[in-house]
């Protein structure tokens, strides 16, 4: 995908509509383009719609994330950001549309645990850590490896695992909180711990929902730094409200509105789009 602002919904419409009729020229081209899109992507969301009791939360949503990309997704309340996350992580099933991971795995058929084990980590909007466990145990539980019941029953901590946990503790700046109960952490520290837990899962794609909500300015800065560092190793999708933070991330932005993609591109391009200005950035 280029950095040109693409009108993704209409684009996707064309593709979906002409999927069957492969004889005419543009359709073949579109099909070819579609295939090339798929082969390059780590996350491929195409024509996804979902309805809750008549309310269309997602309306033919399509977008693609390349491997190693850091992507920010913005949009006003009710634009469908969290629903989109729910669909990618298997919490909600779409009515129509495809969601592919690494161009081949169909995520719409799998549940949360399967998808997590495929290598998609998700951070919630509200920081969610295991409050009755120590920071160390939180990371231990997130540590990749056997997820089976009996594996867990007879599991013993290996040196390698311990080393990884220590490394992550350093990354998320919680070294000295190692034996602290997660419940006793500050709001920002919980956010970091949750990000650390995602890292322990060794995911290929990280979905991060509003990581800086409720953080202090300095914490926000630290978090942006943390995410940029992480984005060097993993593909990351960040959902965020905070425009300054998105600017700090310095990445491609997708604007959602009423369940579809309104605009896509660099933040300064997007900010100039009149429709975006109208629906989101204010008049």
């Amino acid at each position: 995908m280029s950095n040109v602002i693409a009108n993704a919904p209409s684009n996707a419409d064309t593709m979906t509509l002409e999927k069957e009729g492969a004889e005419n020229g543009p359709a073949v081209m579109a099909d070819a383009q579609r295939k090339s899109n798929r082969s390059e992507t780590i996350l491929y969301v195409d024509g996804v719609s979902v309805t809750f009791d008549g309310f269309r939360a997602l309306n033919n949503l399509s977008f693609y994330v390349e491997p190693g990309e850091l992507r920010a997704i913005i949009g006003p309340n009710g634009a469908g950001k969290t629903t989109m996350m729910d669909i990618i992580t298997g919490k909600t099933r779409p009515d129509t549309g495809d969601v592919l991971f690494k161009s081949e795995t169909d995520l719409t058929k799998m549940d949360e645990a399967d998808i997590a084990n495929l290598g998609i980590g998700r951070k919630f909007q509200k920081p969610t850590v295991f409050e009755s466990h120590t920071v160390f145990d939180n990371l231990l539980l997130a540590c990749s490896g056997g997820r089976g019941v009996f594996n867990a029953l007879f599991h013993r901590l290996s040196g390698a695992e311990k080393a990884r946990i220590d490394k992550t503790l350093t990354t998320i700046m919680l070294d000295d909180k190692r034996d602290e109960m997660a419940a006793n952490l500050s709001h920002g520290q919980k956010q970091w711990l949750e990000i650390g837990m995602l890292l322990m899962q060794e995911p290929e794609l990280l979905l991060v929902d509003e990581p800086v909500a409720g953080m202090t300015d300095s914490e926000t800065e630290e978090t942006a730094k943390l995410l940029r560092a992480i984005a060097k190793e993993y593909s990351v999708v960040v959902v965020e409200h905070d425009m300054e933070f998105v600017r700090d991330l310095d990445c491609k932005v997708t604007v959602l509105h009423e369940g579809s993609v309104l605009a896509e591109g660099r933040l300064d391009h997007v900010q100039k789009d009149p429709r975006v200005i109208e629906v989101y950035l204010g008049r």
Binding site: F52, D53, A57, T82, T83, D86, K91, T92, F124, Q125, K126, T128
Partner: peptide, 9 residues
């Protein structure tokens, strides 16, 4: 039951 966006974490 009302279906809805799963907001609870």
């Amino acid at each position: 039951a009302l279906k809805g966006r799963a907001v609870e974490a």
